[in-house]
């Protein structure tokens, strides 16, 4: 399979605001010193690829950089470093403002978390779905109307609802509007940022099944961002686990959830409530470390990790391959299932 999206060594830093010491820093700068400002390492040196027709899940705690990564690779924001390739075309060098009018803009589309909040409240469902078609496909009049109605039909949105405003729609219907406007311009890659987080289980099932059907019909690739691991397990072929700006584990979804190799993934999987099991007691203590200028030579998980030793403090583990999986942990080998040796 050829990679549809290939990102390599992508980092995104933000300047850390005026924290304690800002005044002192300013004074030093005024007196002629060269000052290196602290940076938030929201995404740090992340590489992965999404193949055509593949569904990749991205999981991690809030604040781990999932959203920043997604916004960087959908080119809503600029990356600080690294390459974002769509097919054979390098997109990282194009400023986000310019890319908004690019011919490839339509190829990467996004479904946001709560359509009730991400759809313009003054737009009817029709206007919301028509907007990207007007801007990116330059459709007008009847052609536009036809296309909107086709897409609404594909998403199971009754045509009589198209004249309604977001607040007049139910959660499930709003989710369908959000999906419809993203697939209207026929993207190759659909990025879904927690599309079902605001929905009840009964509605969530319908939306997930809709997404799976659309993927088959339209041959899209998905990047599915979620904190709900049981949903990721069902929908995704492959999963990436992120912790403090780094990918700590990647591999086939079924394997990662059945036998997590990174201690963070292990804790994450143990924390998911299961219907027919009692709560397991593997718990993470403490809070994630600060993402402001983290020690480049220490494992990001050190301090919360139950297995951490001194080596973790002085050497950052690389994302090493173990068969079809990748893990960034010094002890990954010891967590491998018995004698099956990675080839």
């Amino acid at each position: 399979m050829t990679a549809l999206l290939d990102i390599a060594d992508v980092s995104k830093w933000f300047p850390a605001g005026a924290g304690p010491g800002a005044w002192a820093r300013l004074k030093r700068r005024l007196s002629g010193g060269v000052e290196k400002l602290p940076k938030v390492y929201a995404v740090d040196d992340v590489s992965f690829a999404i193949a055509k027709g593949e569904t990749v899940g991205l999981v991690g705690e809030s604040g781990c950089g999932k959203s920043t990564l997604v916004r960087a690779l959908t080119r809503l924001i600029d990356v600080s470093q690294g390459s974002v390739k769509l097919g054979s075309r390098e997109l990282a060098l194009k400023p986000a403002r310019v890319f908004a009018r690019d011919r490839d803009r339509a190829r990467i589309q996004m479904v946001f978390q709560d359509a009730g909040e991400s759809v313009n409240p003054r737009f009817t469902a029709f206007a919301a779905i028509a907007d990207p078609l007007r801007r990116l496909r330059k459709l007008r009049g009847n052609a536009l109307k036809e296309r909107v109605e086709t897409v609404a039909g594909q998403c199971g949105l009754p045509l009589q609802l198209l004249s309604r405003f977001p607040h007049q729609l139910s959660g499930g219907q709003r989710a369908r509007v959000g999906i419809a406007r993203a697939i209207a311009v026929e993207p190759d890659l659909l990025v879904l940022d927690e599309p079902t987080a605001a929905l009840d289980v009964s509605v969530q099932v319908v939306v997930l099944q809709l997404l799976q059907r659309l993927k088959k019909e339209l041959g899209m690739s998905y990047l599915f961002v979620s904190h709900d691991l049981s949903v990721v397990r069902l929908l995704c072929d492959r999963v990436l686990v992120m912790y403090l700006g780094k990918i700590v584990e990647a591999g086939p979804a079924a394997k990662v959830f059945e036998h997590p190799l990174h201690p963070y993934t292990q804790a994450l999987v143990a924390a998911v409530p299961r219907l027919h099991e009692t709560a397991s007691r593997l718990r993470l203590t403490g809070e994630p470390r600060s993402p402001i200028d983290p020690d480049p030579n220490a494992c990001r998980f050190y301090g919360r990790c139950p297995h951490g030793v001194d080596a973790c403090k002085t050497t950052m583990p690389a994302l090493d391959a173990f068969g079809d999986r990748q893990v960034a942990c010094h002890f990954a080998e010891s967590f491998l299932p018995q004698p099956r040796i990675a080839s």
């Binding site: 809030s62 994450l268 709560a279 718990r283």
Partner: peptide
């Protein structure tokens, strides 16, 4: 987050 949820519960 699920990890925090488990601890709080």
């Amino acid at each position: 987050d699920v990890t925090t949820q488990a601890v709080i519960m």
